[in-house]
Design a protein around this nucleic acid. Sequence first.
DNA 1: CTCGTGATGAGACGATGTCTCATCACCGTA
DNA 2: TACGGTGATGAGACATCGTCTCATCACGAG
Lengths: 189, 189
Amino acid sequence: MARWEPDARLRLVRAAVELYAEQGYEATTVAQVAERAGLTKATFFRHFPDKREVLFAGQEQHATLLADGAAAAPDAASPLEAVAAALDHTTASFPPEQRDFGPRLRAIVGSTDELRERAAFKRAHLIAALTDALHRRGIPDPTATLAAELGVEAFHRAYDRWSDGGGPSFGDLARAELQALHAAATALH
Amino acid sequence: MARWEPDARLRLVRAAVELYAEQGYEATTVAQVAERAGLTKATFFRHFPDKREVLFAGQEQHATLLADGAAAAPDAASPLEAVAAALDHTTASFPPEQRDFGPRLRAIVGSTDELRERAAFKRAHLIAALTDALHRRGIPDPTATLAAELGVEAFHRAYDRWSDGGGPSFGDLARAELQALHAAATALH
DNA sequence: CTCGTGATGAGACGATGTCTCATCACCGTA
DNA sequence: TACGGTGATGAGACATCGTCTCATCACGAG
């Protein structure tokens, strides 16, 4: 047994999701979240920089996975192929047993501008990380930025569809979304 | 003469830009901004919902202008032509005498995640407004979203170039950026 | 057993943002 | 002129956020 009850961080995330869903994000204080997790306000802020981040911290690794996946693509891969490789590389983060987490989080985040704002920031962070990885492959702007935006758009669309239905795996959905977006992009006029 | 010193809102914006630039955004309190504007903290929050918005409130009309411009495009206009019309419709907001405002704002916003976050939110708002206007034209997804993202990307790139150099007008730059982005998008593979 | 380490608790603190009540200048109307 | 309505502002209390410092306590190494 550990010195203290283990998984303090995970307990805080669970308590936050529960309380934000039960009584609303704004009506919930950090002290309440900490209390439900059996901790105090000070400890909450040791694990998360602010009240919002407790819902988004898990998405940090997505940026790393996308960048690593793009970097690991074959040298001969085109920009879009590198983006596809980046999406593939995140598939392991979406096991079937976590499908119900997405909609719950989406309902909370969508309830307040304060959280939508953080979501937009995280999205921009993903695009920046992927763009940077493509730059390292020698892909110039604006091609790198466009490919990255397409990839992150596909990522989110795939995540939404994966969360909702019980159908294809995340990897299959992401690939399909990227292809659909690419087709629509080349058909733009 | 008005009842009180006029232009309280504008005075607050000016005071905020000055102080945020002089001593940093985080080191500046709302009370300081209000004091420099000859007002009090309470009045600051009557004009702006929070400490950040004083830097971004002026961008609210851009969303309206983009949406109106897209809506006013000819019925026969393609998605990208509607986006071009939307960009054209914002040109009047960028008179030559305001060119120096952009870089100053950019330096402040770029200095803190808190402000970058708001900027990302505003960008998402622009995309959403433009996407919605394209939907009203009967353009389906994902074409509408892609065209809107391209348009907003062109908008920001044009604004950056317009702020920096003393060259072409904003309208010319926006048109050129949109064309360049479209060319890169159709060449994606 | 003792000491170091690291997570946590306790609580003070400044700042943000909200709220209520008072003030005060102007305006319309009698 | 007098009077009441209106709307922007001032004053200040208030809850909460987020930071900081110091104390506590469990464990592991020596």
